[in-house]
Write a protein that binds this DNA or RNA. Sequence first.
DNA 1: CAATCATATGAACAAATATTCATATGATAT
DNA 2: ATATCATATGAATATTTGTTCATATGATTG
Lengths: 126, 126
Amino acid sequence: MEEDKLVCAENCPHINKINKVKEREPKADEYAKLSNMFKLFSDETRLKIICSLLKEELCVCDLCELLNLNQSQVSHQLQLLRNSKLVKFRREGKQIFYSLNDEHVELIIQMALDHILEEEEKNELL
Amino acid sequence: MEEDKLVCAENCPHINKINKVKEREPKADEYAKLSNMFKLFSDETRLKIICSLLKEELCVCDLCELLNLNQSQVSHQLQLLRNSKLVKFRREGKQIFYSLNDEHVELIIQMALDHILEEEEKNELL
DNA sequence: CAATCATATGAACAAATATTCATATGATAT
DNA sequence: ATATCATATGAATATTTGTTCATATGATTG
């Protein structure tokens, strides 16, 4: 998987820069958790589910209807979101209502939207 | 890909909620851009590259050395980051120096780190 | 201008992820 | 207790994504 030989040993690697980065980079397990978190946002279906739950507590078939997805698809994705504690849920009779479990999610998405909007503005200046 | 029949048509879908969500959800192309953006953060190798560039402008073999990856791997991942304009680069002789192209990136990662830390705190309370 | 260095790229393969279909579960109503 | 409804889950398949290996490119140096 990983190589251990240097690519351009003599002149290239800028050791002081590298050390500077190493000093304050996230820890190994933080990288893992971060990428897992972003993985949840990286599938469009899941992202739509997340964004929907941002505004309202919804049951599974609300999500099916809203996003025009079949029930299995929604349930599978919700399972992933549940496993990583991104959503919480409560049963009410036969239905199960899902909602978001964290306030950071909205901020993260908002930040990413800001980024996208800025990109679009840049492109319009061409 | 997608189903068009309702799952539980009579009683279940909460139409007013659904409409409320629909009113202010991101547009189709925004969803696509958002998920593509998060996809870039979702691979651990790429995330490490991004986090490294957060602090310092680095050349390809700095990244190889720092992250213990082979050159091809790094270049391929950098290509993805370039294509979506997340990084910029400049040539200096034989070397090519990469750096981040956007300030939102740091905020997004910081936000996600905050989320993770909060999760950890919650778990310690058990 | 040939050799070398740093990086990029294409194609083949491997691994991870999403979707589907069939079926299971657990709650309610009859 | 049986039927039905809303949701969950397992396994098979399809799709996407990452890694590797071989090779190409473009700049520099002798």
